[in-house]
Simulated scan of single mutants.
Amino acid sequence: MEKLDNILLLASKGLFDEALEEARKLEDPFDRADALLEIAIKANGVNGIAQHQALEEAVELLRKIKDPYDRAYLSSKIAHVYSLLGDYDTANEFFEIAIDEIARIKDIREQVLGICVLAHYLARSGFFEEALAQFNDAFELAVSANIDYRSKIDLLIEVASIIENTADFLHSRDAIEFYKIAYDIFDKLYVSQKAADAEKKLNLAKTVYFFGTPEIRKVLLEGRYRYVVSLLEKSIEDPQDLFIALLEVSSWAKKVGSPEYLDVLGVAFRLFDRIGLSEKNVQKAAVILTDMDELERALKFAMKIADPAKRDEALRTISLKLAERKDFSEAFEVAALVSDPKKRRDLVENISELKKKLEEEF
C-alpha cells in the first residue's frame, strides 16, 4: 500500500515516467497492473503517451492473472480507462469480461464485492443506470447469502461503503441517487455515523447540484470556503455560471451554520452587479436564494423569469416560505403576483389554512 501511495504521489505531480518505473518494480502481477491502471487514470488528459503505455502493460499483465476476482477487478478498471479514452466499444468488451469472471467466483463475499467493483467503474465511466442495477444485484446477493448474521451485516456495510465511495467520484447531479442508496442501507442497518456522513454528502450534492464537482464537494466538506471560491473563479469561464456556483456555495455554508456564507454571497453579488444575469439563470438564482431564505432577493429574480409557469412556481415557493416564517401579509402580496388564476386561488387557500393552523396552536 505504501509503495502504491508513493507511485500515485509521483503521478499526481506529473512525474509519469518515474511512476511507471516504480510500478514496474512491483513483484506481484496484480499489484503491478493495479498501479499501472492508477497511473493511466491520473494521466488522463495530461500525458497521453504515459496513459497508453500504462494501459497496454496492464492489459498484458491481465493475461498472467488467473484468480477470477482479481481478473474481474482489473477488467473493470481497464474498461474504465478505455472509457476515459473514448473507446467505449473496447470498454464494453472488458466490462463483459468482468461479468464473466464474476460468474466464476465461488466465494459469495468476493462475488458480491466483484459486482460492486464492476458497478463502481461502470458509474465512473458514465453508465449510471447499469451501475445502479449492478449495485442492486450485489445488495440482493448479499441479503440472500447463506452466511452468518454478523458476516452478512458486515458485507452489506461494505456494499454501502462502496456505493458511497462511488458517489464521491461523480458530479453532484449523478451522485445524488448513489448517496441516497448508501444512506438508506446505513440507516436500515442502524450504522448511525455512516448514515449521518452519507446524508450530509447527499444534502451537499443536492445543494451544489449545478457545479458540484467531486473536488468542489470535497473542499466544501472540509469547510474551506475561500479556497472553493478561488477554485471556481479559476475553473468557470462564464461569469453567469460563476454567479450560480457562488450562490450554491453560499447556500451550503449557510446550511451548515458557517458565517462565511455572507462573504461568499457578497462575492456573488459583487459579480452580479458587474454582469447582470441571463434569462437561463434567473430561475436557478431564484430557487437557490429561496432555499437560502434570501426571499427579497429571490423575489427580484423570480419576477424576471420569462416563462409564466416557471415564474408562478417560483413565486409560489417564495410565498409559502414567507408564510412558514409567519410573514403572512408579505406571503399574500407575493401570492397576488401569480398569473394563473387557479394557481393563485389555491395558493391563497394554502396560506390561509397555514395561518389558521398556526393561530389555533397559539
Rank of each mutant, 00 (worst) to 15 (best):
L10T: 02
A11W: 00
A11H: 04
A11L: 07
A11P: 08
S12Q: 15
K13M: 14
G14D: 11
G14R: 06
G14H: 03
L15V: 02
L15K: 13
L15H: 12
F16D: 02
F16Y: 12
F16C: 01
D17P: 01
E18F: 07
A19I: 00
A19T: 07
L20W: 02
L20V: 00
L20H: 01
E21T: 10
E22T: 08
E22F: 05
E22I: 05
E22H: 11
A23N: 08
A23Y: 06
A23L: 15
A23R: 00
A23W: 01
R24I: 09
R24A: 10
R24V: 10
K25S: 11
K25R: 14
L26I: 15
L26C: 10
L26V: 14
L26W: 03
L26Y: 03
L26F: 12
D28T: 10
D28P: 11
D28M: 03
P29V: 11
P29M: 08
P29S: 13
P29F: 08
P29D: 08
P29G: 13
P29I: 10
F30Q: 04
F30V: 12
D31C: 06
R32N: 12
R32L: 06
D34E: 14
D34L: 08
D34F: 15
A35P: 05
A35C: 08
A35G: 06
A35Y: 01
L36H: 08
L36S: 13
L37A: 02
L37F: 06
L37V: 05
E38K: 10
E38W: 04
E38M: 09
I39L: 02
I39K: 08
A40N: 06
A40D: 09
I41A: 12
I41G: 06
I41T: 08
I41R: 07
K42E: 15
K42T: 10
A43V: 13
A43G: 03
N44K: 11
N44E: 14
N44A: 14
N44P: 08
N44F: 14
G45N: 09
G45R: 07
G45K: 07
V46Q: 11
V46L: 14
V46F: 15
V46H: 09
N47E: 07
G48Q: 09
I49E: 15
A50K: 04
Q51A: 02
Q51N: 04
Q51K: 03
H52N: 15
H52V: 12
Q53S: 15
Q53A: 14
Q53M: 14
Q53D: 14
A54T: 05
A54N: 09
A54Q: 09
L55W: 03
L55H: 00
L55T: 00
E56K: 04
E56G: 04
E56N: 06
E56S: 11
A58V: 12
A58G: 04
V59T: 15
E60N: 06
E60M: 10
E60G: 13
L61M: 00
L62S: 04
L62D: 05
R63A: 07
K64C: 05
K64M: 00
I65F: 02
I65S: 01
I65M: 02
I65K: 00
I65D: 00
K66N: 15
K66L: 12
K66F: 13
K66I: 05
D67H: 08
D67L: 03
